[in-house]
């Protein structure tokens, strides 16, 4: 492969790869792929920009001699008197390799890198299909603690004491023999006042709770006893309910929960019960649902069920792929 062609081809590959990164970031599509938390999105943008800069640099310097910036036709006039025995290859490496592949190998490499990348960039729907959601749905109840971002729970003793009246509102459960000590320390059971501190309410006074937070209330009896019967507004994507739905009065609302990238996302969902028939809806469409919370026992799990009064179409939120507390 000619000396000039290698860096030109490398520049071409790098520029295309970098452009995809910049394209997805610039048009906001990266929001569907990487969480805004942390620096993942910025890293992707920086990578794209740096790749494009290197590509331009390589293209500009493609004609530079030797491909490595120094002359190999030097004289070996130094002293070879060191006292070990090995072959001296005077075509040796000067701290870098000259293992540039041939044109065929380069083209194959380019194809392996570029064909999947460009195909994916052009044809990706920026969303998972319902088939994927069904396959990965959290059909069981909660089997562990809620992730920190979606956790509802008692604040620290100091905070609680400052807010005063621990144990007020008569909505507590799970009383134990230690409660007196806990209350005295400001660590009383979870109350409606705690919920009010942690969750915003809409103009109707309904608690605006994320599907993921609602799902995880199923793992905490104390919180269930506060949330049960409360007016709730939530938002998510709606799909048919295929479990325990003999009267066909239920749908399922879900949000994706991802840590870093959408490939690690899991759909977290709860059933939504209607008193009458299910209103018309578009599968996988975005809806705001208002109703009251209830809980059902499904085998050993407690499942939160939203008894809906209203389900109305809503805009897809900006970070749709990333469930977050509303």
């Amino acid at each position: 492969m000619s000396q000039r062609a290698t860096p030109i081809l490398q520049a071409f590959i790098l520029f295309l790869v970098g452009s995809v990164f910049v394209w997805f970031y610039t048009y906001g599509r990266i929001n569907a792929y990487l969480t805004k938390a942390g620096s993942f999105q910025i890293q992707a943008l920086l990578a794209g920009v740096v790749l494009c800069i290197i590509a331009v640099f390589l293209a500009i310097t493609a004609g530079q001699k030797g491909g490595c910036g120094h002359d190999h036709d030097h004289d070996h006039d130094h002293d070879h008197d060191h006292d070990h025995d090995h072959d001296h290859d005077h075509d040796h490496d000067h701290g870098h390799s000259h293992d540039d592949p041939g044109l065929g190998t380069m083209m194959l490499t380019a194809a392996v890198v570029l064909v999947p990348l460009l195909s994916a960039a052009i044809f990706t729907p920026d969303a998972y299909s319902m088939n994927w959601v069904e396959k990965n749905l959290s059909v069981k109840g909660v089997v562990g603690p809620a992730p920190e971002a979606f956790k509802l729970g008692k604040k620290s003793g100091e905070d609680s004491a400052r807010e005063g009246n621990p144990g007020e509102a008569g909505t507590t459960a799970g009383q134990s023999k230690d409660d007196g000590v806990a209350d005295a320390a400001g660590w009383g059971p979870y109350t409606i006042e705690d919920l009010k501190q942690q969750v915003d309410r809409n103009e109707k006074g309904e608690f605006m709770m994320d599907v993921i937070s609602l799902f995880y209330t199923g793992g905490d009896e104390e919180i269930q006893n506060v949330v049960k019967g409360l007016p709730i507004e939530t938002m998510g994507q709606v799909m048919p309910e295929k479990m325990r739905n003999p009267e066909n009065k239920r749908v399922r609302v879900f949000r994706l929960m991802m840590n870093c990238c959408i490939a690690d996302a899991r759909p977290i969902s709860i059933p939504v019960q209607f008193d009458e028939s299910i209103p018309q809806y578009k599968e996988m469409g975005w809806y705001k649902i208002r109703g009251t919370m209830a809980y059902e026992k499904w085998d050993e799990f407690t499942i939160p069920v939203l008894h809906a009064k209203v389900m109305e179409v809503t805009e897809e939120p900006p970070q749709a792929a990333f469930g977050q507390r509303q």
């Binding site: 990164f21 048009y27 994916a120 729907p125 920026d126 990238c261």
Partner: peptide, 25 residues
């Protein structure tokens, strides 16, 4: 804007790109 409707192939493209965006930097 996306160019295709969600599908099993689209799921693959979606996950593939996200891992690539995360790891390539």
């Amino acid at each position: 804007m996306p160019f295709t409707d969600p599908s099993p192939l689209g799921d693959f493209f979606f996950a593939f790109l996200s891992i690539l965006f995360e790891g390539a930097p």
